[in-house]
Amino acid sequence: MIPSIKQSRRFYRVYHSYLVLFFVFLSAPLLVVGAFAFNDSLFPSFPWEGFTFDWFFNEAGDKVGILFDSELLESIALSCGIAIVTTLFATLVACTNAFLFERYDFFGKSFLYVLMLLPLVIPGVLLGVSILVFSSQVANYFEDYWLIDLEFLRPGLPLVVIGQFAFITTICTLIISARLKKFDRTLEEAALNLGASPLMAVFTVTLPYLKPALIGAAIVSFLMSFENFNTTFMLVGSDAPLTVAMFERLREGSTPVLNALSVLLMLGSAVLAIANMSMQKKD
């Protein structure tokens, strides 16, 4: 099973064809989505009517390209905004969490650690509805007793950010903790010996060391927020972020403009993926 142990030729043949099939399975849906972005037809399906860039660049008419589809463009902008805010908060809190769990011992630490991991095993839909119920109750309370209208606790973009933050923070914490574990603390002590205050030591020595993990966590967080559907869907108000807008279009049956959009998303993700990989490689 391992290179040093030889197996029969048939074993390898079967094993290799299995792997080929597996990777065909993995890539097939992505390839067809990409291919039909260039089909000169009103539907993302056969027959093939010829090659076109209309689904990207056409300004008006039957075929409105993605660059001129204002509804989708607005939803992309919304999703980017949500993702940026979520990423900022999630990475910041994750960083403080990582320091807390790696550097301090305190009563109830392991209990808090388990709690911190819980969002990984709570289905996103449930996280969404529980936050919806809780925030509405709080908002109702403030409205009834204090006559204060807390608009941000009603379904809408701020609530989407809150909901996504709730589970993305866990993932970011794990990423940053993993690198902080490997940090050689004598470096920090050296900084202290040289007269730095503890805070200064952290900012000049530890944080630069953590930079790849911080950027990695930020990229993963941005992507998870941008792609999130389950939690987002429960918490949106009237403005639709990209995943929600795409979902509505998919249900209605859409023109290949969605394929074109998907191609752009794949390109965007590829850029992020490469940035992330080169970031992790540097150390």
């Binding site: 993995l26 399906s45 394929n259 794949m266 993700s269 993926a273």
Partner: peptide, 25 residues
């Protein structure tokens, strides 16, 4: 290559399967 699906939104992947599997697919 195994990680690629993570980088592409679940909606895009599902859309891909719809294009592959539907009657005119």
């Amino acid at each position: 290559m195994c990680l690629i699906p993570f980088w592409v939104s679940e909606l895009v992947r599902t859309f891909g399967w719809m294009i592959l599997l539907r009657e005119s697919g």
